[in-house]
Every structure is written in structure tokens, then in C-alpha cells.
Design a protein around this nucleic acid. Structure first.
Length: 200
DNA sequence: CTGGGGATCGAG
DNA sequence: TCGATCCCCAGG
């Protein structure tokens, strides 16, 4: 079993959001210790959301609401929210306190705790466990109610640095057709050639 | 492709 | 208060 004890340092989350996506989050290992079960997967796909200008971001124009408040916190905590009546979405908060940026984790390659993931997801298909933002939250046991705002340097939910080398593809983000000119930004990053990506 | 499902937030 | 909308998923 690979070591997942090492965590990204807290200042990593203060790097600019695109460097954070490309250099630190892609290929890193998202780990959870929830409900007494350890699960982990390699991050294969992320999207950047920028509160100050980005029409696809909940916190567009730095709009502070009850929901977006988490994004304004200091980088290094989790922004988890509930959507579509049944799914959760896990984001990594980036930047200093007062800015509202987040990186949505869209897909993982499952590595540890496969049986737990299969049980939580009610499927035995490995490539259907964590290939989507709603799916990976379910597989890792992440919920908005319990995990929104928790710090990623704790022992519940954390990110362990990458160990592999790979090429990165940059594409438009998914599901944001309403975002006008920000629809065309290449703010979605995924690992080239990895089959555990939500959508090519 | 279709439509379920519940929180959100701004309009009224 | 109400209801259009939403960074999705399972099923057919």
C-alpha cells in the first residue's frame, strides 16, 4: 500500500489557482477517513472557478452568501455543496482569506478502499466509482452537511502530493453554458491518457 | 436522450 | 413567500 500520510503544505493552497491545478492537485491523492473507512484516489480532473470575475462561479463578483461563505476562507479547506437534490460536489478552496476561488475535483482514479467505494456507490464497476464530481463524493463519503469548510490538514479529508509524471490537457469546463464568455476559458485540466476522467 | 430531486437566491 | 435554475446521475 502506498503511503498517503504526507499532506500538501498549507501554503500550497495560496499559489495562483492555475498553478495549483496543474502542479499540485492533478495527480495528487485525495484521501478520506470517514465512517471508520479509509479511501483514496488519484485526482485526474479538476476545474478552476474564480470568484472575482468568473460568471460560472457561485461567488461571481465576490458575491457573499450563506452558500459561498466557505469560498472566502483561507485556502486549504473544503468547499462542499449539495446540488440537484441528491449530489454533493467537492472543491478545494484556494487563495488568501477574502478571495473566493475554488477548484472543483471532477474525477479520481480509485486506489484504496475499493470495496467501501463499491458499497457506497452500489456498483461493482471500477470505472463507475469516482468518475464524476457527484460520484466521487459518494464513493469517499463526502457530504456538504458534514464536510463543508473542514480543513484539509486534518485526518478526515486530505490531499497527499503526487508521485507520478504525466501530460496535462486543458479544455473548457463542463456544464456552464450560461457563463457567456467564461464558457470558453480553458480552465478544466485533466491527465492525458487516463481513462478515469469524467468526460473527454 | 429524459426527468428526478432539494437547496439556493432574487424577484415580487 | 415562490419558482426558475442548477459545476449531475441512473436508466432506457
Amino acid at each position: 500500500m502506498r503511503e498517503f500520510d504526507k499532506k500538501l503544505s498549507s501554503d500550497t493552497y495560496l499559489k495562483d489557482i492555475f498553478s495549483l491545478c496543474r502542479e499540485d492537485l492533478l495527480g495528487a491523492y485525495l484521501c478520506s477517513n470517514i465512517g471508520g473507512k479509509f479511501t483514496a484516489g488519484m485526482i485526474t480532473e479538476v476545474e478552476a472557478y474564480v470568484g472575482s470575475c468568473d460568471k460560472a462561479c457561485h461567488a461571481y463578483l465576490n458575491k457573499l452568501t450563506k452558500r459561498t461563505a466557505t469560498m472566502f476562507r483561507c485556502g486549504g479547506c473544503a468547499y462542499v455543496y449539495f446540488v440537484y437534490g441528491m449530489y454533493n460536489q467537492f472543491n478545494v478552496v484556494q487563495g488568501p482569506e477574502g478571495t473566493a476561488n475554488a477548484v472543483l475535483v471532477r474525477s479520481l482514479q480509485p486506489l484504496e478502499g475499493l470495496e467501501v467505494m463499491q458499497q457506497r456507490r452500489q456498483t461493482d464497476k471500477i470505472n463507475n466509482l469516482t468518475t464524476g464530481p457527484g460520484k466521487l463524493c459518494q464513493a469517499l463519503g463526502i457530504t456538504a452537511k458534514e464536510h463543508n469548510g473542514i480543513n484539509l490538514d486534518g485526518n478526515t479529508l486530505w490531499i497527499s502530493p503526487k508521485t507520478d509524471n504525466f501530460s496535462i490537457i486543458e479544455k473548457t469546463r463542463i456544464g456552464i453554458d450560461y457563463a457567456e464568455e467564461y464558457r470558453d476559458k480553458l480552465w478544466r485540466f485533466y491527465i492525458k491518457g487516463n481513462s478515469f476522467v469524467s468526460k473527454y
